[in-house]
Lab assay of single mutants.
Amino acid sequence: DVEPGKFYKGVVTRIEKYGAFINLNEQVRGLLRPRDMISLRLENLNVGDEIIVQAIDVRPEKREIDFKYIP
């Protein structure tokens, strides 16, 4: 289970104008929005990159997770 405030290693699987989709595993995916990136820009991410993200909002009923990147 993903818990708000905890850090997780994930893989960038898709990049859109509104953010990057990060997979923690095959069943768990969330969104990293540009506003939640500190010292990292969306255009510097590539599909396949491994990054450490912090879960900031977890909505299991909608199967949605918002992430934050903190270097």
Rank of each mutant, 00 (worst) to 15 (best):
Arg14Leu: 09
Glu64Asp: 06
Val11Cys: 08
Gly5Phe: 10
Ile38Ser: 12
Lys62Trp: 08
Lys68Asn: 05
Leu32Thr: 01
Ile22Arg: 00
Val47Gly: 02
Gly5Cys: 09
Gly48Val: 00
Asn44Tyr: 11
Leu32Val: 03
Glu43Ala: 13
Ile56Tyr: 14
Ala55Thr: 08
Glu64Trp: 14
Leu32Lys: 01
Arg33Glu: 02
Val28Cys: 08
Gln54Ser: 06
Lys62Met: 12
Ile70Leu: 12
Val12Ser: 00
Tyr8Thr: 01
Phe7Met: 09
Asp57Asn: 15
Lys9Gly: 05
Phe67Asn: 01
Glu26Lys: 15
Tyr69Trp: 09
Glu3His: 14
Pro34Asn: 08
Leu31Arg: 03
Pro60Glu: 09
Leu24Ser: 01
Gly10Phe: 04
Pro71Arg: 08
Phe7Leu: 08
Asn44Trp: 14
Ala55Cys: 13
Arg14Ser: 11
Pro34His: 08
Asp1Cys: 12
Gly19Tyr: 06
Phe21Tyr: 14
Leu40Asp: 04
Arg63Asp: 11
Gly48Asp: 05
Phe67Leu: 11
Ser39Val: 10
Glu26Phe: 14
Ile56Glu: 03
Pro60Thr: 10
Pro71Tyr: 06
Gln27Asp: 13
Pro34Cys: 08
Arg35Val: 09
Gly48Pro: 01
Leu42Pro: 05
Met37His: 03
Ile65Ser: 02
Asp66Gln: 08
Lys17Trp: 15
Gly5Val: 03
Arg29Ala: 11
Ala55Pro: 05
Tyr8Glu: 00
Arg59Trp: 06
Ile38Cys: 11
Lys9Ala: 10
Ile65Trp: 08
Lys9Asp: 04
Val58Cys: 04
Val47Pro: 07
Arg14Met: 08
Val12Asn: 00
Val11His: 10
Asp36Asn: 14
Ile70Lys: 08
Leu32Cys: 02
Glu50Tyr: 15
Glu43Asn: 11
Asn46Ile: 12
Ile51Phe: 04
Asp57Gly: 15
Lys6Trp: 08
Gly48Asn: 07
Pro4Ala: 14
Arg29Tyr: 13
Ile15Gln: 01
Asp66Val: 09
Leu45Tyr: 02
Gln54Thr: 07
Asp66Arg: 13
Arg29Met: 12
Val58Gly: 04
Gly5Leu: 09
Thr13Gln: 07
Gly10Trp: 15
Ile51Lys: 00
Gly5Tyr: 09
Val11Ser: 07
Val28Ile: 14
Phe7Cys: 10
Pro4Glu: 11
Phe21His: 07
Ser39Gly: 15
Glu26Pro: 15
Asp49Gly: 04
Phe7Lys: 06
Pro71Val: 07
Asn46Val: 13
Glu43Leu: 08
Asp57His: 14
Pro34Gly: 10
Gln27Leu: 14
Val28Arg: 06
Thr13Cys: 07
Val11Met: 11
Arg35Cys: 07
Asp49Thr: 07
Leu40His: 05
Ala20Ile: 06
Gly48Phe: 07
Gly48Cys: 06
Met37Thr: 05
Gly5Gln: 06
Asn46Glu: 13
Lys9Gln: 10
Glu61Phe: 07
Asp36Ala: 06
Asn44Leu: 11
Arg41Met: 12
